[in-house]
Computed example of a mutant assay.
Amino acid sequence: LSIEIPFLNVRVMFCSGRDCSDIKENLIAVVPKIPSGIYIIHPENTDSSFEVSFLEMDYMGGGWTVMQRRSDGLTDFKRSWIDYSDGFGNLAGEHWLGLKKVFHILSQKDTRFQLHIALVSKDDVTSYASYDDFHLDNETQFYGIHLGRYAGSAGDAFRGYEQEQNQDTAPFSASDVDNDGCNPSCSLGNLTVESCSALHNQTGWWFNQCGRANLNGSPEHTESNQRTSILWDTWRQNGVPHVIKTVTMKIRRIPTNN
């Protein structure tokens, strides 16, 4: 594999790029400052290579693979299962890397991964939520999510306030694949909900009776006064959830206790 580093005008060659943490380890000895950008990785348990976005080499020590980015509203997150499985959007901007690709990265042998969620509010307040162990079930189990210990300043919206809506271990749902636990319906306040994806404007997420988090939420209208639909309910100010402007989900390998 090769990587073009424009500002150095060189092409760095390396033989192992299983994920962004691996790329960082291989390049740090020859490149003093590894730039963010679009890189090619080849997880060890798949036959194919694929591009990933921006590695976030200058964020909290670097080595991050971006699995989701929301920033400008230019990418439509109202998508079917196949899109959420394969990925969509612009790697240099808003995108969803794809459950299949993320699964390949996370399921490499002798590896553990951290999930880091960086949030920015409409008022430019920043916050984060981090999970020290993150993995997914395979496709036949609908890429169920598994989260380790929470740390951060935004609250643990994945687990929320009630066990019934705890999204940890929930399978992924999309507009055409319903695994949200509302069988045949859920009661959310005064609402009777048959599909959490439909409630969240046909977006895909790890819903469990809808829950308190959906970072893929899409607004039904684009007027400036429309409340944002990116949901992280535990991040609040004066009891009211922050209006979230941008979010990035990123993963990084962490040392194993071998």
Rank of each mutant, 00 (worst) to 15 (best):
E94H: 07
D124L: 13
E223Q: 13
I23W: 04
W205Y: 15
M249R: 06
D137S: 15
T192R: 12
S49Q: 08
N90C: 11
G204A: 03
L191G: 00
E220S: 14
S173V: 00
D19S: 11
Q163D: 09
V177W: 03
V193N: 08
P6S: 07
N190Q: 10
L136K: 03
F14E: 04
D180T: 02
C15P: 06
C196R: 01
G98Q: 00
L99S: 04
E139N: 08
G211L: 01
G148M: 07
I34D: 00
S121M: 09
R70V: 05
C182V: 00
A129L: 02
K24P: 05
F7Q: 13
V12C: 09
W96A: 00
Q209L: 10
Y150V: 05
S21M: 07
L74W: 13
L199S: 07
N258D: 14
T140K: 07
M57N: 02
R252N: 11
D123H: 14
T234N: 15
L27K: 06
W206H: 12
L99E: 00
G189S: 04
M67E: 05
D22R: 05
V193S: 07
Q163T: 09
T46N: 09
R69Q: 00
T203D: 04
S21D: 09
R227I: 09
I254L: 12
T256F: 08
D133M: 12
M67A: 06
I40K: 08
A170M: 01
T192N: 11
V30A: 12
A157D: 05
V66C: 08
Y150K: 07
V193G: 06
L91G: 02
Q237V: 15
E94Q: 11
P241W: 02
G144S: 14
S80K: 12
L106S: 02
D123M: 11
H104D: 12
G89I: 01
H42A: 03
Q209I: 04
